[in-house]
Design a protein around this nucleic acid. Structure first.
Length: 588
RNA sequence: GCCCCGGUAGCUCAGUCGGAUAGAGCGAUCGCCUCCUAAGCGAUAGGUCGCAGGUUCGAAUCCUGCUCGGGGCACCA
């Protein structure tokens, strides 16, 4: 509809040119149509005349009049007015307004969806937390945001591929395997000293016990051999925790042998990744693929990526390492690809990963990263550019941290002390729906306070329940209708829609008609919170209406018209909630 | 020091590509259940859009400087 209005204006401008009202030299401004902010301004407003006034050097109101007189007839426009400093205000016909209701009911779950994405392949990577422990609340926001964004893009016609990048290679996997093994030894009755920099979480103990139960004592080795001649744990000058850890890892591989060590590592990875996947599934987050970093390395993709950078002439050797000339592409400093010890860096793997995404045919790449990774963006974009890929194809959405509050107190969030709240705990405390809704409620770049008490409260203070309750209330009305032996006659309703002339009804009609535009805008801006704002507005309009007007009345035609209005409202509520991964309860 | 994000009502936050009188929820005060779920609704009060310049017919929005808060500046992942 917005597009339709814009095209009417464009035609008017062309017709003004043809009539000599505008000379060829005058540059036509972009035609911007927006929803009128105030109902007294009609449905749509355009500032075209004001923009044109500048280049045409003419009075904006007079230009607006001229545009108005050149507008072609349209069956959906009832009135066009010139207002204020030169706005063109468009008012829709009642029929056009009602069309949205019928569309919502006919299209059902499809209402609001569009094809503006034209099937363009979009790759979206989100969460990608290291598989060294369970997801915590810091990951929740990325999960809720990424999943909602992916759904928005799907709903607007993009071919979306959702992926989780699993960092299952590198030193952290060795630390994980070691941590598991030590807990396993302890579970088997051996006396061990747990390294200060190992992964200390209880979840490791649980997995170790599971391993012992499954495989028995085949991985038990004498602790005396394990700890012989190791650098001391602790901080300098008393010890070196990192060196101690690396030595322990080396010793573990030695004592266990590569095959057994590999078994341990895989067991730990599978256990933790399985936990992550289960948490995400319970959170309503679905992926097409969990992409393994190991497959990049084992498949030679990292070497290939480094070679590609080398062939592009953007690498050099210095201090024994191989560097990428990132500064040539706007980064602050050059970045190491292959270390002095011959191992490739995480960055090299990430170059390979992004190159792989492009080679798999994705035109647009979206990465949802924690804000702490922002310094990483320039180097990845630099690498893409060096490889001849337009860096604008990569859109990194940085998600700021959420700070949890309970009883007005900030919750401590320290991984080290094990005081973190896991995503699972959050979900068990406030529920999936509230958690997802709250996470997606704010702009991702906005720092966020997550009030656990509010998320749990069963009142209108809680925006999740507020929206869900609107849906449940419509369902309740239809249950009452059936109990009274009445039916919703759609044909009779369609002929009586003009009777929906109360202000509350007009507001709801407007909102329902706006839904496709809101969905499109939220998707294009890649901002799911826009959809939530709309949802809250729609729910509020419905609750107001519900309180002001009885639906199940004796006047058959008016009753059916109102039922059509609230049925359409329910459909839109359900569609929007679904995109956010939130349930639409039939009763509460 | 450099880079990124933010500063809008007491609190939490919206504010579309610069547009008409800056909005919502909470909190405060006062009301509304004989009636389809009160997990709801209505009304009132509440603003130097961090500060100072600039661009523009028009700035919360764009530019510059300053300031405050958060985060980041690895041959870790």
């Amino acid at each position: 509809m917005k597009r339709h209005v814009a095209s009417l204006i464009t035609q008017a401008l062309q017709s003004m040119r043809a009539a000599g009202d505008l000379t060829q030299e005058i540059e036509l401004p972009p035609v911007l149509v927006e929803r009128a902010r105030d109902r007294s301004h009609g449905d749509y407003a355009a500032n075209t005349a004001m923009l044109l006034a500048k280049s045409a050097k003419r009075n904006p109101r007079e230009l607006a009049e001229s545009i108005r007189s050149h507008l072609p007839d349209s069956s959906v426009i009832a009135e066009v007015a010139v207002a204020g400093p030169g706005f063109l205000n468009f008012t829709l016909t009642a029929q056009a307004r009602h069309a949205a209701l019928l569309e919502a009911l006919e299209q059902g779950e499809g209402y609001g969806r569009s094809k503006i994405g034209a099937g363009e392949p979009v790759h979206i990577e989100f969460v990608s937390a290291n598989p060294t422990g369970p997801l915590h609340v810091g990951h929740g926001r990325g999960a809720a945001f990424g999943d909602a964004l992916a759904s928005l893009l799907e709903a607007t016609g993009y071919a979306v591929h959702r992926e989780y990048y699993v960092n299952d290679a590198g030193r952290q996997m060795d630390i994980l395997a070691l941590s598991l093994w030590l807990r396993y030894l302890a579970a088997a009755g051996e006396s061990i000293a747990f390294p200060s920099q190992g992964y200390r979480g209880d979840y490791i103990v649980a997995h170790a016990e599971a391993l012992l139960a499954r495989d028995g004592t085949i991985y038990v080795r004498p602790p005396a051999e394990l700890y012989a001649d190791l650098p001391a744990d602790g901080q300098p000058p008393h010890g070196d925790a990192e060196a101690h850890l690396d030595a322990l890892i080396a010793r573990a591989r030695e004592l266990l042998g590569e095959a057994a060590y590999r078994n341990l590592l895989d067991f730990a990875l599978d256990a933790i990744l399985g936990e992550i996947q289960a948490d995400l599934a319970a959170f309503g987050v679905r992926y097409h693929h969990y992409f393994s970093e190991r497959t990049l390395r084992d498949g030679g993709h990292i070497d290939k990526a480094i070679e590609a950078l080398h062939n592009a002439g953007q690498t050099y050797e210095a201090e024994g390492a191989l560097w990428f000339r990132a500064t040539a592409f706007g980064d602050d400093k050059d970045r190491v690809l292959r270390r002095e010890n011959g191992l490739t860096t995480y960055f090299a793997a990430d170059v390979a990963y992004h190159l792989d995404k492009v080679e798999r045919g994705y035109h647009t790449l979206i990465n949802v990263w924690g804000a702490d990774h922002h310094g990483y963006v320039p180097r990845v974009k630099a690498a893409l550019q060096a490889l001849g890929i337009d860096p604008a194809r990569l859109d990194v959405r940085l998600v700021q941290f959420a700070v949890l509050y309970r009883g007005g107190e900030k919750l401590p969030m320290s991984t080290r002390s094990g005081e973190f709240v896991t995503l699972r705990e959050l979900r068990e405390e406030v529920g999936k729906d509230a958690a997802r809704f709250f996470y997606a409620m704010r702009r991702s770049e906005q720092h966020m306070d997550f009030d656990l008490d509010l998320a749990k409260s069963e009142s209108s203070d809680n925006p999740v329940y507020y929206c869900q309750y609107a849906h449940a209330r419509v369902c309740s009305v239809f249950r009452q209708l059936a109990e009274r032996g009445l039916q919703h006659d759609h044909m009779r309703a369609a002929n009586a829609l003009t009777r929906l002339d109360a202000e509350h009804e007009q507001i709801l009609l407007d909102l329902i008609g706006r839904y496709p535009e809101v969905l499109e805008a939220a998707a294009l801006a890649r901002e799911p919170h826009q959809l939530i704002n709309y949802l809250r507005e729609l729910a509020a309009a419905f609750h107001t209406y519900y309180n002001a007007v009885p639906f199940i009345i004796d006047d058959d035609a008016l009753r059916d018209a109102r039922l059509t209005l609230i049925a359409a409202t329910r459909q839109v509520l359900a569609n929007a909630l679904r995109l956010l991964g939130v349930e639409s309860p039939r009763s509460m």
